[in-house]
Simulated scan of single mutants.
Amino acid sequence: MPAHPTRFEILLVPAHVETRGSATVADSAVRSAMVEATGETGETGYPRYVGHGMVADIDPRTRTVEALLVDGMELDYGLTALIAPEE
């Protein structure tokens, strides 16, 4: 079984933000959360990560959020969930 990252930072960014100028993705986020691996597989078949009110299934290979609950609810329209760039 391949080793997956133990944590990711999820950024919720308004979808209407087309150009950020000199702002980073993190600067444009309206909320962020550090999520930790649970060791479980989510409904999507990807590893499940939990933290700070978010439950996410994340494809660690592509760094894509495949499913997300925020405070127990689906993501609001107009928001996009992104994984913060690696530093």
Rank of each mutant, 00 (worst) to 15 (best):
A33I: 13
Y77C: 06
R63F: 00
G72I: 05
V30I: 15
A67V: 01
G78C: 07
M1Y: 10
R48A: 09
S22Q: 13
L11W: 00
I58S: 04
G51Q: 05
A81G: 13
T38V: 14
D27I: 07
M73F: 07
I83Q: 04
A23T: 11
E66L: 02
A67R: 15
E43G: 06
R20W: 01
P14D: 02
L79R: 10
T6R: 13
G21F: 02
G53A: 07
L68S: 06
S22H: 12
F8M: 02
D59F: 00
H52R: 12
M34S: 08
G78L: 02
A37C: 08
D57W: 02
E86R: 11
L79F: 07
T6Q: 14
G72M: 04
V17E: 12
D57I: 03
T19V: 04
R7H: 13
E9C: 08
M73G: 00
P60S: 00
T41S: 09
L82E: 13
V70D: 09
V55C: 11
V55M: 10
P5H: 04
V17M: 10
M54K: 06
V50I: 06
R61Y: 03
E36I: 11
G51W: 00
I58Q: 01
G53E: 01
G51N: 00
L69I: 04
P85W: 03
L12V: 14
T24Q: 06
G21S: 09
S32W: 01
T19M: 07
I10W: 02
R20H: 07
Y49Q: 02
L75R: 11
L11I: 06
M1G: 14
M54V: 04
A81P: 15
A15M: 09
A15K: 14
M34P: 00
T62H: 09
L11T: 11
G42E: 05
A29R: 06
A15I: 08
V30R: 09
V50C: 03
Y77H: 08
G78E: 03
R63L: 05
G51L: 06
V13I: 15
H16A: 13
H16F: 12
D76I: 01
S32V: 00
A67P: 04
V35S: 09
D76L: 11
T44H: 00
M1H: 07
F8N: 04
R20I: 04
L69T: 15
L69K: 11
M54S: 01
A33E: 12
P5R: 14
H16D: 14
T6Y: 09
R20K: 09
L68C: 07
E86I: 00
T24N: 01
T80H: 04
A56R: 01
A81Y: 05
E43Q: 13
D76E: 15
L12G: 06
A26K: 14
G53R: 01
H4E: 12
V17K: 10
P2T: 04
L69V: 06
Y77K: 12
A23C: 08
A33C: 12
G51H: 08
D59Q: 02
P60R: 03
V17P: 08
I58H: 03
E36L: 12
V70G: 07
E66A: 14
L12R: 09
S28C: 15
V25C: 05
T41F: 03
E9R: 14
G78H: 10
P47M: 01
Y46A: 12
A3K: 05
T38W: 05
A29G: 05
T44F: 03
L69Y: 01
P85N: 11
G45H: 10
D57M: 04
